[in-house]
Amino acid sequence: MEFDINVWYDEQIKGNVIFSYKGDISSNVIDQVLNTIEHQLHVIDEKPGVSKKLYNISVEAIQNLFHHVDLTPGNTAENGGKFIIFVIRKLETGYLLSTGNFIKNNRIKVLRDRIDQINFLSTEELKELYRIILGNEEFSEKGGGGLGIIDIAKRTGNKLNYSFNPMKNDYCFFCLEAVVT
């Protein structure tokens, strides 16, 4: 059975949701999302250290989506929407950030290997990897050099959960979760 994005989204917005977005991503959307998250953290009077960490991770996560998401199936570069889901829930301790986006099946392996590698490394090893990549000249034209997801893992200190959910044609829906404590 095909993965149902709406059912998955409804699951994500159960509980203590402090922010949720489902729709296309653009530079303006990023501004709105980040402003709203910052405002919400202020409203619930979260400690500065936790707020800062969650904001930083939100910046990386949403900009990663902006740079790397594939066009929504059926769209072309001309009319192209890039659909994403972005949800932050408050847990008993900390926050859960969940993102969802379409990617083409031929990109699964690289991404899965990258996250598995990150999850396998200790915090100290992640810091070392980050320094090596930062000091290395090989950055992609999008500027990030694959540092975004390492940065998220390094800041959370927790393992990343993920799933690749089969969709029609050559696509799957990639779900990523990070717990911020």
């Binding site: 800062k52 910046v59 990386e60 900009q63 950055f139 500027g143 990030g144 050099g145 540092l147 975004g148």
Partner: peptide, 12 residues
């Protein structure tokens, strides 16, 4: 106060 990984290379 904040900088993203995309800025980190530029700052370098």
């Amino acid at each position: 106060e904040y900088f993203n990984t995309s800025s980190s290379k530029c700052i370098l």
